[in-house]
C-alpha cells in the first residue's frame, strides 16, 4: 500500500515538477533552505523576525511600495552605497523572486 502511494506520489511529482519549475517555484527542500538563510543570515542585519536591525524591517507593510521584481533585483544585486550585499552567488533569480513574494505575503514571526 505504502509503495503504491509512493509510486503515485512520484508520478504526481513528475507531472507537476516541470510546471512548478517554469513558475519559478523552488522545491520544498530548497524553500526550507531559503527560509533558513532568510531568518539566520539575512537576519544578521534585518533581524531573525525580520523586524529590522541595522537593515530595514522586511515586513509586508515596509515592502508594500516595491514590486516583487524590484525586491528580487535588490536581493540579487544589493544596494550600492548601503551595507546590503548582492546575494546572487547563493541563489538564482527565480529563488530571489520567490523569496520576495513570500516576504510581501508576510512570513509571520
Amino acid at each position: 500500500m505504502a509503495s503504491i502511494r509512493l509510486i503515485l506520489l512520484s508520478f504526481l511529482v513528475l507531472l507537476t515538477g516541470p510546471t512548478l519549475a517554469s513558475a519559478g517555484e523552488p522545491t520544498p527542500a530548497r524553500q526550507a533552505e531559503l527560509l533558513y538563510l532568510l531568518r539566520h543570515d539575512c537576519g544578521s542585519c534585518h533581524g531573525m523576525r525580520l523586524a529590522g536591525g541595522l537593515g530595514p524591517a522586511l515586513t509586508p507593510e515596509q515592502l508594500r511600495p516595491y514590486t516583487s521584481e524590484q525586491l528580487g533585483a535588490t536581493i540579487m544585486h544589493g544596494r550600492p552605497g548601503t551595507p546590503m550585499p548582492p546575494w546572487r552567488h547563493f541563489l538564482t533569480q527565480d529563488e530571489a523572486l520567490w523569496l520576495a513574494r513570500r516576504l510581501k505575503q508576510g512570513l509571520g514571526r
Binding site: 543570515d41 542585519c45 548582492p86
Partner: peptide
C-alpha cells in the same frame, strides 16, 4: 575593491 559584507 571591498568584497560584499554578509555579516558586520
Amino acid at each position: 575593491q571591498k568584497l560584499p559584507v554578509y555579516k558586520m
